[in-house]
């Protein structure tokens, strides 16, 4: 018969023998696993129970958190659903000086042609602008607010400091009422804005238009050029072409 003390002594001696050093293969594999599986931040970590928690002891707070999260989520969904209910007509407030051609966004659906209409409130003249983009870099065109400063008899371009892909064009409203085409060539470097000359509304507000491109455009690198050409009717003098050259 083996006594308790004998068993304890024998066990202690028996268990004391044996390897004490871990094989490197296992440790290396674990370290390689960690390197291959970098840990990502778990946003729901606070919902997970402590690994040293006894069963049931810490599940209470986790369930409370989970219930709270569900309630908040349902509340947010309900608020969104109520907020987007189509009970009110959308209110569209046009810019004070420039009115789009249609109540929808001023850009036509065509991917290569953008049509917008600028409005000079002081003379109540609408000027349609048609942009034909052969380069494929223009992604948006929108009318801007009229300028109260002295009118410029040329075109000016300014890059939006907050978004270098946006370029604002300002020019004098000459040839008001007639359509002004703005073709952009395939290279995307030469743009022409045709307008009737001589202007019958010189001294009026300058018009503005903002173009957005798929890549940044630096206005200071542009080469702006004014070209005078005969009027289309042949009776009112030459037609002026404003060309913008972007050096390559």
């Amino acid at each position: 018969m083996t006594g308790s003390n004998d068993i304890d002594r024998m066990l202690a001696s028996y268990l004391d023998g044996g390897p004490r050093r871990a094989p490197e293969r296992a440790t290396d594999a674990a370290i390689a696993f960690a390197a291959a599986h970098p840990r990502r931040r778990d946003p729901l970590l606070f919902l997970k129970p402590d690994v040293m928690a006894r069963r049931g002891s810490l599940m209470g707070p986790q369930l409370v958190w989970a219930a709270l999260l569900i309630v908040l989520t349902l509340g947010a969904v309900a608020a969104i659903a109520i907020g987007t209910r189509p009970s009110q007509e959308p209110v569209v407030t046009p810019p004070s000086g420039v009115t789009p051609l249609s109540p929808s966004p001023s850009i036509t659906p065509s991917p290569t042609e953008f049509a917008i209409e600028l409005f000079d409130p002081s003379n109540e003249i609408r000027t349609p602008i048609t942009i034909q983009d052969a380069s494929g870099t223009l992604v948006d065109a929108e009318p801007g607010e009229p300028q109260d400063a002295e009118p410029v008899d040329q075109i000016e371009a300014t890059t939006d400091p907050a978004d270098p892909t946006r370029l604002e064009l300002v020019w004098t409203c000459c040839g008001a009422g007639s359509e002004q085409p703005l073709p952009i060539d395939e290279s995307g470097k030469v743009w022409r804005l045709a307008r009737v000359f001589p202007c019958d509304t010189l001294g009026g507000a300058d018009l503005r238009m903002t173009l957005t491109f798929s890549e940044p455009v630096d206005a200071t690198t542009l080469d702006l050029e004014l070209v005078d050409t005969p009027a289309a009717s042949g009776a009112q003098g030459p037609t002026e072409f404003v060309a913008i050259h972007q050096p390559g």
């Binding site: 674990a30 696993f33 960690a34 599986h37 840990r39 778990d42 970590l45 997970k48 129970p49 402590d50 690994v51 040293m52």
Partner: peptide
């Protein structure tokens, strides 16, 4: 490695 973030203490 996988479960260590869940060890609170």
């Amino acid at each position: 490695w996988n479960e260590l973030p869940r060890l609170r203490d």
